[in-house]
Amino acid sequence: MKEKRPMVAIVAVASLALMYLPSAAVALFSVNNARYGLAWRGFTLQWYARLFGNRDIIEAAINSLVLAVVSTLVATILGTALAIGLRRAPWPAALLRVFDLLINLPVVVPDIIMAVALAMAFNVLRLLSSVFEMGLFTLIVGHVTFQISFVTLVVKSRLEALGQDTDEAAMDLYASRLFHFRHVTLPLILPGVLAGAMLAFTLSLDDFIISFFTHGPESVTLPIYIYASIKRGLSPEIHALSTLMLVLTTIPIIIAERLTRRF
């Protein structure tokens, strides 16, 4: 059956073209020395240089990065604690089912509904405290809310794979609670925690919809910046910015691929 099938190959290549041609065009015109039109006027890196002179873009990039780092840290700690708390302590089965539902909520609920629900929650909460005025803080809280679930799900599956033999062995050998966590549990679940953190980080950088509904005028992220500038029209600077974002998402994927192949 593994014979040559030209139609299959043609559709496969066409699919790739569908996914890559538009991005390739953007990359091409990001180094074209013309502000208007699509005629080729020679190679230039001036649009990239201008990116670094644009304070709005630099600010958006910093916002995106701070948002991703902080929310990932918080979500990783909370998500891991949740996974351990659910697995390593006795809960009644009925409660566990409710918790499971809660954890799977961000997976099932469409992004736009979560975004709307969060925006509404912040609108109520800001009556209690001005901290909840739309801004970087609400962005972080919003991102953590969907990230927790993904970290928990990854760590939980790791914990389930481990079973409880190592715990019992450690306890039989009179390990203290802290020693047990530090030297038994943590090293064993660390790959899961790191994988969950990586996932949370990428989800945060990639997110548009939740950010769009929970950001303030002073806290624009890169995807929101691009979205807003589309409404003003395309420009070579945005070509360059899009290309950079594409390249930046490619690097961790290739690194992850390398790592998983080596181990």
Partner: peptide
């Protein structure tokens, strides 16, 4: 993992 806004932008071009 390509951002959906970046992708839409590319189609606009």
């Amino acid at each position: 993992w390509t951002n959906v806004v970046v992708r839409a932008y590319a189609w606009l071009l």
